[in-house]
Simulated scan of single mutants.
Amino acid sequence: MATLLDQVTELENKIKNHDAYGTSYKWSPRDFELGKALGQGKFGHVHVAREKKTQFLVAIKALFKSQIVGSKCERQVLREIEIQSHLKHPNILRLLTWFHDERRIYLVLEFAAGGELYKHLTNAPCGRFPERTAARYIYQVADAVDYCHQHHVIHRDIKPENILVSSDGDLKLADFGWSVHAPSERRKTMCGTLDYLPPEMIKREVYDVSVDHWCIGVLLYEFLVGKPPFESEGQSSTYTRILTLDMTYPKYVPEGAKDLISKLLRQSSKERLPLEGVKNHFWVQKFRN
C-alpha cells in the first residue's frame, strides 16, 4: 500500500505536469520568514509569512503528516490540495504553491489580511451585517461557488468560518477540506456543518451541486440575523427544523432578502434558485451600484 509520502509525491508530480503548474523550482521552508500565528487547524498551524526574495506576504498552513495518517484523512487532504491548486477566481483563496518534507505538508496560500468573515459578523453592530453589505457579500460568494460548479467542484461546507476577507474588503471562499470534484455531480457522503446541512443530506439521499445553493441561503440568513435559521439545542431538533423548514424571519429582515432566501431554502433541490439567479436577483442588484 502506498504511504502518504508516496501519495503526496505522486500528486506533486501530477500538478506540476499540468500546463499551468510547469514550474521546476523546489520550494522549502527556508524560502519563507514565519510571522505571527493566524490560527490553528485540525492538523497544524497557520502563520503569516514573507517570501524572502520578493518580500511577498502569504499565509502558510503546515499540516503534520502523522496527524493526517492518524485521522485517516489522507484522501481528504490530498483532494483538497488538488482541487484548490486548480481554482483561480477573485473570490476564492488561492493556493499559490505547496511542498512537503518528512514531517509536514506546507500549503502556501494567498494572505487575506481581513481574517475570518465570522469575526467580522460577530463584531458587527447587533452581530449582523447591514443589507448593503450582506447583498454585496452574497453576490461574491455566489459568483465563487458558481465558478466551482462550472469546474465540477462542490464545496459542501460554505459558512462564515470558511470565508476570509481580503485587505480591500472582498470575500475569499476558503477551506476546501470537504470539497469534492464530481463530474457526475452526484454524491451521497454526509458532510459539512450541522446548521447548514440540506434536507437531502440528512435523509442520506443522493445529492448534487444544489447542496451549495441551500448553504448560500442559510449563509444569507446568518448574515442578516446573526445566527443560522434552524439553530436548536440539539442535533435531532436541528434536523427536524431543517426537514420541516421550521424558520422565522425577524421583522428587520428586508422583504427582498426574504424572497431570495426562500428561493434557496427549498426542500426539493430542483426548485432552488440557480446561482446566476442569485447574482441577478433584484435585491442583490439593488446594492450592486
Rank of each mutant, 00 (worst) to 15 (best):
L96T: 08
S167W: 13
G114V: 04
Q67P: 01
A20I: 07
N289A: 08
L173V: 15
Y147H: 15
V145R: 12
Q285S: 06
Q7S: 12
I261N: 02
G169E: 04
T3H: 08
C215L: 12
E12F: 12
L220D: 04
F282W: 13
A59F: 11
S237D: 15
L265Q: 06
A62D: 06
D19N: 08
G115S: 07
A144D: 12
K42M: 09
V218M: 02
C215D: 06
T248G: 11
R132L: 02
K188D: 09
N13G: 15
V108L: 03
V165T: 03
Q55V: 10
V46M: 00
K172V: 03
K72T: 06
E10N: 13
Q40L: 04
H155S: 03
A142R: 09
R30K: 15
A59W: 14
H149F: 03
A49I: 09
Y139G: 00
L57E: 10
G234K: 15
F32M: 00
L34R: 15
F129W: 10
Q285I: 05
R75P: 06
V165W: 09
L107G: 02
S166T: 14
K88T: 07
R128S: 01
F223T: 04
S28C: 10
V108D: 00
L197T: 00
V153C: 01
Q40R: 14
Y249W: 06
F282T: 06
T248M: 10
A37W: 02
A144S: 14
E131L: 03
P160A: 09
W98Q: 00
H100W: 12
K88L: 04
R75L: 05
K188R: 15
D170C: 09
G217E: 03
R272Y: 07
W27N: 11
E222V: 08
E74Y: 11
L96D: 03
G115K: 12
I158T: 02
Y147D: 01
Q40A: 10
V69D: 03
K286W: 10
G39C: 12
K16W: 11
E233W: 14
E102L: 08
A49P: 09
L109E: 07
K286D: 01
S166L: 03
D212G: 02
E200Q: 08
R30F: 13
N17R: 14
L265P: 05
G115P: 11
V145Y: 10
A59I: 08
Q150G: 02
E74A: 09
W283Y: 10
E271S: 11
D175S: 01
Y147T: 06
L220H: 00
D175C: 04
Y221A: 06
D6N: 11
S85I: 05
K227R: 14
L197F: 11
T9E: 14
L219K: 09
T23Q: 12
V69Q: 05
N17L: 13
K36M: 14
P125A: 02
